[in-house]
């Protein structure tokens, strides 16, 4: 392996990769939320459909490039995360009979692989409901109608909201951890980064949760 690949595959480099891909996915989530909130406009999805047609346009080259990057980074983030988790499990070897990690670390910091796994399962189902039929298939209705239909199902909406809670768990640790992994930690910023990350994670996931909640209690959207 040459220098660069050895660097990103070292124990320090793997975390740098987790941080950069994670922050990229966070940026995507902000954009995704901003777009999806158009679903809540009381216009039967007119503006949302214009937005999604623009984002899905085959001539929208910058978005197509970023989309390929996004899929690559998501897969890299997952594979790298599983490799880190497995390597770290092996490093312990023999487990303690009595262990009390709640005294020295947060629940969120120890839950990353499990929160991540739940978010991954959510992602697969999410792509199956929206991305594959509406982007790659021949849909019989508009994406707006598809969203209304999917979220009118209380089980589907509740599953979404639960997955979003786990996403918030993942981000509460992930956001501040990304900065630490990149070496960005100076006493005067630590509290700001940590607190901003917590508020951001809650607001982001609450924003996404608004959409299933809206359609669940307002079936049909009008």
């Amino acid at each position: 392996m040459s220098g660069f690949f050895r660097f990103i595959d070292s124990s320090v480099g793997k975390k740098i990769v987790m941080a950069l891909t994670g922050l990229f996915i966070i940026l995507f989530l902000v954009e995704h939320l901003a777009g999806n909130l158009l679903l809540l406009l009381n216009d039967n999805g007119k503006i949302f459909e214009e937005y999604s047609a623009f984002m899905a346009g085959s001539l929208n080259i910058p978005v197509r490039i970023v989309e390929i990057g996004l899929f690559f980074f998501i897969i890299y983030h997952i594979v790298n995360g599983v490799r880190l988790w497995w390597g770290n499990r092996v490093a312990r070897g023999f487990s303690y009979k009595v262990n009390d990690p709640s005294e020295n670390s947060t629940f969120f910091s120890r839950f990353m692989i499990w929160g991540g796994t739940i978010v991954f399962i959510f992602l697969v189902i999410h792509l199956r409901t929206f991305f594959f039929p509406y982007r790659l298939g021949n849909p019989s209705n508009t994406m707006y109608e598809g969203a209304v239909e999917a979220f009118s199902n209380p089980y589907y909406s509740i599953f979404y909201i639960i997955a979003l809670i786990f996403l918030a768990f993942h981000l509460v640790h992930g956001f501040q951890s990304a900065f630490q992994s990149l070496g960005i930690r100076y006493n005067k910023y630590t509290a700001i980064i940590k607190n901003f990350g917590i508020v951001f994670s809650i607001l982001l996931c609450a924003g996404f949760a608004l959409i299933p909640l809206y359609f669940l209690f307002n079936a049909g959207g009008n």
């Binding site: 124990s11 880190l84 390597g87 770290n88 020295n104 670390s105 910091s109 630490q180």
Partner: peptide
């Protein structure tokens, strides 16, 4: 040894 995942247990 494992890789650091910033749980901060070490410092505590």
């Amino acid at each position: 040894f494992g890789a650091c995942t910033n749980t901060e247990a070490c410092s505590a």
